[in-house]
Design a protein around this nucleic acid. Structure first.
Lengths: 141, 141
DNA sequence: CTTGAAGCTCTAGTTACTAGAGATCCTATG
DNA sequence: CATAGGATCTCTAGTAACTAGAGCTTCAAG
């Protein structure tokens, strides 16, 4: 049995976040000690590690909730988990593509900056003028 | 003079978002028609386009606020704008790097999925086990 | 037995919007 | 000129995923 501080240290999830996860029902209500402090076992730690990892991977909490409910029923086909992961992969790829075009534009802006005054600052100028940029269609998304 | 609907169409910023920007002081209070409806001129449209573009580039509103206040003083040196853009570039690069490692891991998970039952689903398994992944240090950030 | 760290609950704040209710206004058609 | 409909108004509250703080209690070390 470990208290919330140890659990936090073990999983890297901050204490208020653990309580928050319990509040929204992502973690079951923890058992309490005589003095009303939360007590966790290894199961809880594993569940929290699962959440942590999925969060690191960018899964929203709702998907994680779904994944957890799947993992509670090990005899079901895993198509649903696959769908969630695949959806996540698509969105990660999309985010990468966007960010790469933004990176290019920022580099271009900075390369043109002659360190003069604001009036001829390319950073400001480029930001004021959407026509000249490489990601014109991203706004529509 | 254009009303909020036209401004929204012209800039691609949604109507409630325009009002929100006014509320938080990012846009000055718009003039009103006899019937209390907001009226915008070309200046407002440019300012909003600037905001829009900077948002697309991933700048947080606070940075945009700063950028706008800079662009209102064209005789100042542009070092500050440069610093903001540079900071943004660093964070964009960092986000790309993270996402690329997440992409790899998701691809790996999906490649291993044999479409059996949950009990042998690699997606669930990998998520439950942080040891085996490629981005172990990301959580610390 | 005391003291200081760690835990508790509860509320409110964050970012950048988005949604909805209910009222008002503007414009085009009959 | 009346009216129907879409557009706009204000206001409140909700979203995601936490984070911060106040004020209290409990636990462990000395």
């Amino acid at each position: 049995m470990l208290n919330i501080g140890k659990l936090s240290a073990a999983t890297g999830v901050k204490i208020p976040t653990i309580r928050y996860y319990e509040q929204i029902g992502l973690l079951p209500e923890a058992g309490r000690s005589a003095g009303n402090q939360r007590q966790y076992d290894v199961k809880s730690q594993e569940r929290l590690a699962f959440i942590r990892h999925a969060r690191d991977l960018g899964f929203p909490l709702d998907d994680i909730r779904e994944l957890l409910s799947l993992s509670d029923r090990p005899d079901m086909p895993c198509g649903a988990a696959d769908v969630i992961a695949r959806r996540q992969l698509v969105s990660v790829r999309d985010r990468i593509a966007r960010l790469q075009s933004l990176q290019l534009e920022l580099e271009r802006m900075l390369a043109q900056c002659a360190h003069g005054t604001i009036s001829d600052c390319k950073v400001i100028e480029v930001l004021g003028n959407h026509q000249c940029c490489l990601h014109a269609d991203h706004g529509a998304a």
